[in-house]
Design a protein around this nucleic acid. Structure first.
Length: 553
RNA sequence: UGCCCGAUGGUGUAACUGGCAACACGCUUGAUUUUGAUUCAAGAAAGUCUAGGUUCGAGCCCUAGUCGGGCAACCA
């Protein structure tokens, strides 16, 4: 059982249903349509549905809502399965709405026999017109009163392929004046002579969502059918089918979908970003898809933690992107190995260190994890340090390197900057420093006290690497509030590629390995990485009080 | 001129179902630190959309408003 306190409203319902004996065991389902990749919003739903089953000893089915063959593909089916597994969940059964096409057809015939469905020859425009508006009643048409026999024959002929796409539909016969527009004789079946990813060319008529989803739930004995708020008005129809068809009474419950700052969470729009090449595919690390987040270096644990923290309720929400960052940092801090990487180098020459000499200095792999061990860093008289770890005219409270100043090189020695060398255009090109041999890490008896510790790599041993620095894909905080084309809000600087110098240990990394590049951020080795060209994606930066301090000034 | 949801610090979620609003993120300040990270400590921040009502007592119940969101795809 979950915690005694702080249950969300769905957990409350489940507990009540279990306690009252209404159900011995709960069954939930995660029902994606295979027409795109899963995103963070789906992760919320996955964690909810699978989490419920896990907490209350139930089962969760993975059911593909594949009733529209035009937009659905097996590529999407495969990606969805892989993403759910990666997130750490296993389904009880892998199912498809298309598994039920025969039964759904029988349900439709049953409705016709009961006088509750009819074949309509109207065009979609006519149907839309007759439907009225939210404030205006709809009107009956002449097809509404066809006899059961005629409807049976026509529907059969629809199935046989006697009619062209759009020529006829099967509709429920409910009430064209109903206040809920979904109850105004909703379309149940449409004709589509299309190849289906699973049933191939067996069918040329396909049920719509409303006639497939609830019945699929009923067939599977789903006890709690959990979906997002936009389906609230569908619930009345959902219940109507259950009643008229006399099938298992699944119950639908709705929660508010996830919205996040600077993030677009619509499958349709994400598809457009992919198709129009605003990003490099569904798993471009800037995308909010699960596969992209994986590639970027997020961990399943951190995503689950995030979903836990945002909670489940019915009011509209806009989650701060910073919460997600907090969750990854929190996890990565504990597990990511520390490495040193210089993104924007300045060369440092240590004038009092013998030029042919090199030594190997141990450095812990992860101070948060005693079992992580250490590796040896090569050290010599030529190093690279980060360009902004040096300032000629430092502001107050700057405690990195400046002319005449001292810093510690992490896991190595304290150095002092003696001389600044510029190139022709006046840029700082090289720093001449002296080191203090007695200040060696681990055996420091120099008596020197420095505030700053900076990262570095040996210029002679460093290996070049490509580093991909990602920023938010959009510049606008609340994309739900915009009126214009969302592509106007893309951040042109969402990706910066930088050539960097890595400590040599990094050549042993494998794709998807995650690291903390000390004082810079968390990074993940990209799939594109090769032995000759290391590539890392920045998952997120480290928290940075110094930049905050500077902004104040 | 309809129907359906919703409303608690900046953000998100709680509040033993009527007993003087809690947790997390963020923010501020300080300590520790060979990552300006982490960690630790302290603090600011809502009187629960409004107005009535019931009650000894209301964020929780009732009434009427206000505001926000959704509903007119042969999409899901």
């Amino acid at each position: 059982m979950a915690n005694e306190k702080g249950l969300n409203f769905i957990e409350e319902i489940v507990e009540k249903d279990l306690k009252s004996g209404k159900y011995q065991q709960i069954i939930t389902r995660f029902p994606p349509e295979p027409n795109g990749y899963l995103h963070l919003g789906h992760a919320k739903s996955i964690c909810l549905n699978f989490g419920l089953a896990k907490d209350y000893n139930g089962k969760t089915n993975l059911r593909f809502d594949d009733t529209n063959p035009i937009t659905e593909e097996t590529e999407y089916v495969d990606s969805i399965k892989s993403d759910v597994r990666w997130l750490g969940f296993e389904w009880a059964n892998e199912l498809y709405a298309s598994d039920y096409f025969d039964q759904l057809y029988d349900f439709a015939v049953d409705l016709i026999n009961k006088g509750l469905a009819y074949v309509d020859d109207s065009t979609s425009e006519e149907i839309a017109l007759q439907k009225g508006t939210p404030t205006k009643h709809g009107t009956d048409n002449k097809y509404r009163n066809r006899s059961v026999e005629e409807n049976l024959k026509l529907f059969e002929e629809m199935k046989e392929g006697k009619y062209k796409d759009g020529a006829k539909v099967l509709r429920a016969k409910i009430d064209m004046k109903h206040a809920n527009m979904l109850m105004r004789d909703p379309v149940l079946y449409r004709i589509k002579h299309a190849h289906h990813h699973r049933t191939a060319d067996k069918w040329c008529i396909y049920p719509l969502y409303d006639f497939a989803h609830g019945q699929s739930d009923a067939i599977e004995g789903v006890t709690h059918s959990i979906c997002t708020l936009e389906f609230v008005p569908h619930r009345e129809l959902y219940d109507w089918f259950i009643e008229k068809l006399e099938i298992f009474p699944s119950k639908q419950y709705e929660f508010a979908r996830l919205n996040m700052t600077y993030t677009m969470m619509s499958k349709r729009k994400l598809l457009l970003l992919v198709n129009e090449k605003h990003v490099n595919g569904w798993d471009d690390p800037r995308m909010p898809t699960i596969s992209a987040m994986r590639r970027r270096g997020f961990t399943p644990e951190s995503i689950r933690d995030f979903c836990e923290r945002i909670g489940v309720a019915k009011r509209d929400n806009l989650i701060d992107f910073g919460l997600l960052e907090f969750c990854v940092r929190d996890h990565l801090n504990k597990i990511a190995l520390r490495r040193m990487m210089v993104l924007d180098p300045i060369k440092v020459v240590i004038t009092n260190y013998e030029s042919g000499k090199e030594e190997f200095l141990p450095s812990e792999n992860n101070p948060e994890d005693d079992t992580a061990g250490s590796r040896n860093l090569p050290f010599c008289n030529e190093l690279y340090i980060e360009r902004d770890d040096f300032m000629e005219n430092p502001p107050k409270k700057y405690f990195r390197l400046f002319p005449g100043g001292m810093v510690r090189l992490k896991s190595a020695y304290i150095i002092q900057c003696d001389e600044v060398i510029r190139n022709a255009s006046g840029e700082v090109e090289e720093l001449r420093c002296t080191y203090f041999p007695e200040s060696k890490s681990g055996s420091d008896n120099s008596g020197l006290k420095v505030k700053g510790v900076i990262h570095w790599v040996s210029a002679k041993h460093a290996v070049p690497a490509e580093v991909r620095l990602y920023d938010r894909l959009f510049n606008t905080e609340d994309l739900g509030a915009i009126e214009d084309d969302f592509t106007n809000h893309l951040n042109p600087e969402s990706l910066k590629v930088q050539h960097a110098y890595a400590e040599p240990e990094l050549v042993n990394a494998k794709a998807e390995d995650r690291f903390q590049f000390m004082r810079i951020g968390y990074f993940c080795m990209d799939l594109d990485s090769t032995k000759d060209k290391l590539v890392f994606n920045r998952t997120t930066t480290l928290r940075d009080m110094w930049s905050k301090e500077q902004k104040k000034a």
